[in-house]
């Protein structure tokens, strides 16, 4: 995280601290001063922030390294949810693997692997011939998102699926100031923090991480140093798609699987990447948590005082507009 602590980012850190304090204040008011209610709102914000991070981190790293805004990232999130749901609920799988926790774990592995394989196919098969034509790439990823969404509707119908086959871990609750909160959601938050740390370590402490960070700055120079940048592109694109599919499958037990979940997360993730600073990993991590917290707080406030839930869904875009008005390059983006 040395990047965000640099002197040029002090202004951004102050904005982040100010926004968090403001959101926590609003959250406390919306909870009517009830610590339990307030705590649940904050945890819900962290839960949503972590799911957003899983879509936005791939979007951000892919954009930073390859200059591709992958509009299919939301579709990979949705695909992860459907594949995970289908595997976990398939009668044949239930018979073969009666242990529900194990089945869920395998569903996570399978959905992530499917996301990764389709990521490789998209990058190598469709995007690679278009590296000289960036506009075509954007149109292509948009088209792929539409095709994936329609394919999912074709195979699984447009009926939303909610997770009916429960598993032990999913059912647990813990109490916070007298309020019950799902241990599964806490698990997702923990997984999110572990992934934030793991990706940061990958970027900071490994050779491939150094190559990715260098490639974000100048991929031509990286190639001129003897590194096959196209292979790195494939790896990063695959990782981004796998992360999105992983996010979808771990969100599915709570959010279910619906054919519009991809677009909803994609739009919020684009807002996260823009407000965090295009291509900045740290900006994306902080932006995800900020947007997640804002959505949870606004949802609580709107339900309590405005009786209009629409405010929560437009919150990511509103927050992005506010941040970009104050800081046009995003919180931790680099000056062009």
């Amino acid at each position: 995280m040395q990047g965000i602590l640099a002197a040029e980012n002090r202004h951004s850190l102050l904005i982040v601290i100010g926004l968090v304090a403001f959101l926590l204040g609003i959250g406390f008011v919306a909870a009517g001063g009830d610590l339990g209610d307030f705590g649940i709102t904050v945890l819900s914000g962290l839960f949503q922030g972590m799911l957003l991070f899983l879509v936005a981190s791939g979007l951000s790293i892919i954009f930073g390294l390859m200059d591709i805004l992958n509009f299919a990232q939301g579709a990979y999130f949705m695909l992860g949810a459907y594949v995970g749901y289908a595997f976990h609920h398939a009668p044949a799988v239930i018979t073969a693997i009666p242990n529900r926790d194990l089945r869920f774990l395998l569903a996570v592995v399978l959905a992530t692997a499917v996301g990764a394989v389709l990521g490789v196919i998209l990058e190598r098969g469709l995007l690679r011939p278009l590296y000289a034509r960036p506009i075509f790439q954007i149109v292509l990823t948009f088209g792929v998102a539409l095709v994936m969404t329609e394919a999912i509707k074709f195979f699984w119908s447009t009926t939303p699926y909610s997770w009916t086959e429960m598993f032990g871990f999913r059912e647990g609750f813990f109490e916070l100031f007298g309020q019950r909160f799902s241990t599964y959601r806490l698990f997702v938050i923990a997984v999110g923090f572990v992934l934030i740390g793991a990706i940061a370590l990958l970027l900071r402490r490994t050779r491939i991480g150094i190559i990715i960070r260098a490639g974000v700055e100048d991929s031509e120079m990286v190639e001129a140093l003897g590194i096959n940048v196209r292979a790195v592109f494939t790896l990063v694109f695959t990782l981004g798609c796998a992360l999105a599919a992983f996010g979808g499958v771990i969100a599915a037990p709570f959010l279910g699987a619906t054919s519009n979940m991809g677009n909803a997360f994609l739009l919020a993730a684009i807002a996260v990447v823009a407000l965090g600073g295009m291509g900045s990993y740290e900006g994306t991590a902080i932006g995800s948590l900020l947007v997640g917290l804002a959505v949870a707080v606004v949802a609580k406030f709107a339900t309590q005082y405005l009786n209009q839930s629409v405010w929560a869904s437009i919150t990511p875009m509103l927050l992005m507009v506010v941040v970009l008005l104050v800081r046009p390059r995003g919180l931790f983006g680099k000056e062009e």
Partner: peptide, 20 residues
């Protein structure tokens, strides 16, 4: 290759610029 304008990776430390 040492290009015009150096193309140093500004976010990477000197050590990382050499290690890469």
């Amino acid at each position: 290759y040492v290009p015009e304008h150096r193309a140093i990776f500004s976010e990477l430390t000197v050590r990382e610029n050499l290690e890469i």
